[in-house]
Design a protein around this nucleic acid. Structure first.
Lengths: 184, 184
DNA sequence: TTCTTTATGTAGCACTCGCTACACGAAGAA
DNA sequence: TTCTTCGTGTAGCGAGTGCTACATAAAGAA
């Protein structure tokens, strides 16, 4: 309901924290309010309804992730070297809250639920751009296709990892078989 | 509560159908019962509680998928040829109900929620075996690593597709750039 | 000072949730 | 026939849901 008073932003920040912890599937107002030290009444004072609250919180979380990614020290490298480094980055423990929410978003997007489908697309585009900016190519002509392959492969490996099969990406990324990543 | 009377199996079948339509996140007993022409009372007569019902239904759906995959006509081929074919298979419309549930399972597994984490692992292992059985190799030594890479890449592309970015996998799989799939 | 806006508490409404208690007819076992 | 088990309907409980109505105190505007 407010334009954007500082208090509202602060509350949004806390909501983002909470969502990173518990996810958004079962989120309900009263426990959320209790966790961040306010009341459901106040949440619905700052936000028109639960939908608006969740949407803004997810966007906020996404923004945080993107900002953080931009500041990640990761110098450009060719495909084979970049792939395992990005994979290693995202399986770091402090990225897992983001990843868990990401998979919730994917599930919602796969059901064509708005606004999550749109948000997921934007996140994915952001990933693609981020990956592309760090990929060293011999010929610029292939950059799009190779970035796409890189992103797809990373997302796939991360999914295997987060479903509890970290050994499969490790196998494919080749501990002791460095040719496994790409064909050559 | 029952051993396994025919009626219970029939109900389970209907529950599986319903879950394939609406997903399992918001599932509640009364609407489910109404949809399959029974009552919540009866659901809790056949199943000890909602948890048992969902668990068995998910396992049932999974079994259906695996059976169907086994019967899929897909002759063994080398990596580059197999990748786009499996991708094309899973983006067929009649696979999308399975995929949507799959992503819900992934989200739950990423949160370490049982029994979904265990089920997801088993599904992924099943996929890996299925993929491996259809992959033609020059040298058997690399089969594990190559199968893992294939599975990871496919899962990644499918995730891009189902989040609404089908153009990215298409790009990587190379419409007009058939070398994009693997490095060569 | 008076009036309006902002921020917040208290109560509660209408609804849904998973689950249970109780009853009762039909069917099979003794 | 009598008794038990199976299957099913009706009703409801206690807890939770998003959301709203109403009141009110503090603060700033006139």
């Amino acid at each position: 309901m407010k334009g954007q008073p500082a208090k509202r932003l602060e509350v949004l920040e806390q909501i983002a924290d909470h969502i990173l912890n518990v996810g958004l599937t079962g989120l309900s107002l009263r426990p959320l309010a209790a966790a961040i030290g306010t009341s459901d009444r106040m949440l619905l004072y700052y936000f028109a309804d639960k939908n608006e609250l969740i949407t803004e919180a997810v966007v906020h979380v996404t923004t945080r992730l993107m900002v953080r990614l931009q500041s990640e020290l990761l110098q450009p490298e060719p495909f084979d070297a970049l792939l395992p480094k990005i994979y290693a980055l995202f399986i770091q423990e402090d990225y897992s809250p983001f990843m868990r929410i990401w998979y919730e978003l994917v599930a919602l997007a796969a059901r064509n639920e708005e606004p999550f489908k749109t948000i997921s697309c934007q996140i994915m585009d952001g990933f693609l751009e981020w990956v592309s900016a760090r990929l060293v190519m011999e010929s610029e002509a292939d950059r799009s296709a190779r970035s796409a392959l890189l992103l797809g492969t990373i997302e796939g490996f991360l999914m295997l990892y987060y479903t509890g099969l970290g050994n499969i990406p490790a196998l494919a990324l080749g501990l002791g078989d460095s040719n496994a990543v790409t064909q050559n």
